[in-house]
Design a protein around this nucleic acid. Structure first.
Lengths: 192, 192
DNA sequence: TACACCATGTAAGTGGTTACATGATTGA
DNA sequence: TCAATCATGTAACCACTTACATGGTGTA
């Protein structure tokens, strides 16, 4: 159900069509949820049926149509309710740590290469999320600016800080993984 | 495909039937992968067809049959190949951080309650993984003892340390999340 | 003899992946 | 006029969830 809430969360900032939302969710990282357009379009139609969002058909040029969706009051309510509810932790299922569990069965070189790739990926994420976090703190992202338009100016700082803080959380997790990978590389080579 | 490799990884220690494997994977946390029995039994049959494992039918009492699976050479090879391969990082999809992104839209009390629940869950995980890690270091888990029987004694320490280290990784991630949740609680109350 | 545990299944449904498919518009 | 981008879809497949279903065995 989370894709629906992720979509609601973006549409809360401003109305968008499927294509814009797709750019958001397909650009994989730099955010907290990802999804391909093949999942987004049907979900949007479902959500409209459920009354969470409202679609407005528009025409660009002479034939190309697009449907711009905006969040409804019911959608806002649903987003708030979901955000304020405790959800059971998802089952543990981490392919990378699973892989690492069997490092004793393979060459050190191979294991080291897997670790280095993971390390690079995590550092990439840290950099991207870091940039996004800074942009949020400076209130310098398209979406945040839109969002703040409908909030009292006195709250702008607080909102920006809260949003930025979420990315600090993702960064903290990625850093823990990166540090662990670095330590693992040390342990592997020590044993030689 | 990871469930298959998780199963191979357990069967590498010793042959087991579906029920035993289920106890392993359904007891949710305390390990790195989880799956219900409804997924495990069909997967085992698939893996047998693929030649990764071999089933041996046994009879307990007069009628109750069980199939004990053991890993084959092909299975071992597959596990080693998978373990030594770089796999693309899974798409970012973290429901908890998604929820946190919208904390500015709800009451501080509600947000704090969600954070506290998450904190408790993470601390639970840290405790369980910590216990498992200690047991591994002491070479005092059923599975590890079985596993070590087929390895040269000179390697026992190294293997135990590597396995334990994986749980240290999971703990590090959980701790990062717990610390972040604690910090978030501080930030929320500061703003009051 | 009743209860906890052993043992294994099926089936419907959901969320996500991957691939295929089509066509319009804009700007260099 | 060509390429990049805009815009939206369908369909097959896979992993996982949830619920339903059945019956045997050991022991208190």
């Amino acid at each position: 159900m989370s894709l629906q809430h992720a979509l609601l969360g973006v549409l809360e900032a401003r109305p968008m069509n499927g294509y814009e939302l797709t750019r958001f969710f397909e650009a994989a990282p730099r955010w907290v949820w990802s999804a391909p357009h093949s999942q987004i379009y049907p979900t949007l139609r479902q959500m409209e049926q459920a009354g969470l969002i409202e679609g407005q058909k528009e025409i660009r040029g002479t034939k190309l149509t697009r449907t711009v969706y905006s969040i409804t009051d019911r959608g806002l309510e649903e987003l708030r309710a979901w955000t304020g509810t405790d959800h059971a932790a998802p089952p543990v299922r981490d392919a990378f740590f699973l892989q690492a569990l069997f490092f004793d069965m393979i060459d050190q070189d191979r294991a080291a290469s897997v670790l280095k790739t993971h390390l690079a990926e995590q550092e990439q994420l840290i950099a991207e999320w870091g940039a996004h976090r800074d942009a949020l703190l400076a209130k310098d992202t398209d979406l945040l600016k839109e969002r703040l338009k409908s909030r009292p100016p006195a709250e702008h700082d607080r909102i920006a800080r809260l949003k930025a803080h979420v990315f600090a959380g993702q960064i903290a997790v990625a850093r823990a993984r990166a540090d662990w990978a670095r330590e693992s590389l040390r342990i592997l080579s020590e044993d030689t």
